[in-house]
């Protein structure tokens, strides 16, 4: 199944590297990518964003979750070329979207810490981004059922979901302000 050979005469169908511009966490990056490079490959291996993680390559586990124009997508199921011209946010960019000036982390991340909503931490970036997007979209306090429905695609194997749901509720509650 070598890619070379039969495609030779057909210049259009050759897998040529392409130059693309990615906007990630407010910074513009110029990258050379092959068509087969997934967004995950480029973010993790090329741009060094360790928080975007390979977990399954099927879009099932959620460890490669990033925000594409504010909504969660699986970076393993998008080609890097498809992200051109879009706004990408990974976990390390979240603090810029709502943290206090100079803060180390976003208030939602603080809530994960305070509730102890993690153990190994491998799933945490995906869970935080998915939860952030939900609260932004709902614009108020999502119900427990809504939170669980939204997070269904972000698997956690260490700590279950009890504390994660608590953390998201705490954040949404604090964002909505005192009642």
């Amino acid at each position: 199944m070598s890619p070379t050979g039969e495609g030779e005469e057909n210049t259009v169908a050759r897998a040529e590297p392409m130059r693309l511009t990615l906007q990630v966490n407010g910074t513009v990056h110029d990258v050379i990518a092959e068509p087969s490079d997934t967004l995950l490959d480029v973010l993790h291996d090329r741009l060094g964003l360790g928080e975007v993680r390979y977990g399954c390559g099927e879009g099932v586990c959620g460890t490669c979750t990033v925000l594409l124009d504010g909504e969660p997508v699986s970076a393993c199921l998008m080609l890097a070329l498809q992200a051109e011209g879009r706004e990408l946010t990974t976990l390390s960019g979240l603090v810029a979207l709502g943290g206090e000036p100079g803060a180390e982390m976003h208030p939602l991340q603080e809530c994960f810490l305070e509730e102890g909503a993690l153990q190994c931490g491998f799933c945490t970036p995906g869970l935080v981004l998915a939860a952030y997007s939900l609260v932004e979209r709902v614009g108020g306090e999502p119900s427990e059922e809504e939170i669980r429905y939204e997070l269904v695609g972000n698997l956690c194997r260490c700590t279950g979901y009890t504390k994660v749901v608590q953390a998201v509720r705490r954040y949404a509650g604090s964002k909505a302000g005192p009642k």
């Binding site: 199944m1 890619p3 495609g7 259009v12 169908a13 068509p35 087969s36 997934t38 390559g57 099927e58 879009g59 699986s74 393993c76 199921l77 998008m78 080609l79 070329l81 498809q82």
Partner: peptide, 27 residues
């Protein structure tokens, strides 16, 4: 050998696992 790429939620997963091997993706 060309395949259409829409949402990619099945196709790209199959390609990642080498279960689908198009030579051209039309996005």
């Amino acid at each position: 050998d060309a395949k259409l790429l829409a949402g990619g939620q099945s196709l790209v997963a199959m390609m990642n696992l080498r279960l689908a091997r198009p030579t051209l993706l039309v996005d």
